[in-house]
Structures are given as C-alpha cells and as structure tokens.
Amino acid sequence: MRFINTGVLKFACACAVVVAVWMLVLPVVGDFPSVRQRIEGNRAAGINPTAVFYTDHPAMADIERSIAAKVNAPTGSFWQFSARRPK
C-alpha cells in the first residue's frame, strides 16, 4: 500500500513539473531574443527541426529543385574535375 502511494505521489509530482515547465517556463524562454530569432528563422525557411526523415521538411521539395537546377546547369560546370578546370 505504501509502495503504491509513493508511486502515485511520484507520478503526480512529475505531472506537476511537466505542467509548470511547459506552461510557465518554456513560453518565457521562447521570448528570449536569441531563441525567438532561431524560431522565426526556421519558420521563414520552412524548416521542421524535429523532422525524422527528409520528407518531413516542408521546404525539402523547394531545396531539391533549387539544388537540381544548379547541379544540372547547362554549363555542366558542377561536374568538371579539377584536371579539366579551365585556367
């Protein structure tokens, strides 16, 4: 009985900590200029920092198109080996 009460108490304490951190601490931290700048920068660039796979990035398709246009540019410059580099 005593063990169960300890477990419930630990669980309740952990829940209280979660609520306090997520509802009180993190919103304040989010207003720090450096943190805010990072958040806004990621949003503007279409970055999902918690992406598990490349498909989770909202901006990945645009990045692929942009890179492909440069890699496959008509000049073919991207693929030139150093030995063939024009002086």
Binding site: R38, A45, I47, N48, P49, A51, V52
Partner: peptide
C-alpha cells in the same frame, strides 16, 4: 537528426 541538420545549416 534530419531536422537539426537543416536548422543548423540555416
């Protein structure tokens, strides 16, 4: 992490 890579690059 895939997400952190883009965030760091930015």
């Amino acid at each position: 992490s895939t997400g952190a890579v883009a965030a760091a690059g930015e």
